[in-house]
Design a protein around this nucleic acid. Structure first.
Lengths: 108, 108
DNA sequence: TGTACATATGAATGATTGTTCATATGTTTA
DNA sequence: TAAACATATGAACAATCATTCATATGTACA
């Protein structure tokens, strides 16, 4: 896909607006320190809810709430393991977005 | 930079938290439909404030407010041309982040 | 110099959001 | 089955944010 025009596949104006809406929604979800910390932890590898909460010093409830929001945007995926739930980064786009984002802020 | 660990350059825990804060701040700014539409327009090439407002059907004032927010995060840059101000995307990281973001939402 | 134009900014308001606390669901093991 | 544990969810509150309207600044040209 051409970086100058990443919307070649988008046909109509409604399609474009719909994609831009979803895009802003995804960024909105990324735009919270707690969720960024969760995702950064998950880039290091999959984790249980409890371990995320402990490692980041946030309540279980707060982590669970934020994981639900991340799930809704498909930024994380999960699978059940007994009474635990293991979360991980949804796909490599997420890691790349983080990577580019960090390069951007470090260039400031 | 390694995608699995884009933080090699970050030394201390405070450095890490500071980078993550700036990162979440950048995403927060990207997480608004008006600003996403502005940036998408600017990916097509530099534009005057007036032309952005007209093209996106937003008031001059609203565009100007959002451009200031985008400027503060160095997501856009500008130069003066007589009584006009020309805005453009700050760097290629921004375009790449958009590119990856669109691929992510289109994969949903 | 004065008028028109382009952009920026301040204040106010209506809407949205993250956290906490309490509770619920579902799973394991004693 | 009962108790303990892991995770999820609902409601409520405090804080944050985008927009609008009015006004200010600065530039160009008559």
């Amino acid at each position: 896909m051409d970086v100058k025009d990443p919307l070649k596949a988008v046909r109509t104006r409604e399609d474009l607006e719909s994609v831009l809406y979803d895009l802003s929604e995804t960024f909105r979800v990324l735009g919270d320190l707690t969720r960024v910390r969760i995702l950064m932890a998950l880039i290091g590898g999959e984790m249980y809810v409890r371990d995320l909460a402990e490692s980041l010093e946030i309540s279980d409830s707060a982590v669970s709430h934020q994981l639900r929001i991340l799930r809704n945007c498909r930024l994380v995926k999960f699978r059940k393991e007994g009474k635990n739930v293991v979360y991980s980064i949804s796909d490599e786009h997420v890691a790349t977005i983080f990577h580019e984002g960090i390069e951007h802020v470090e260039g400031m």
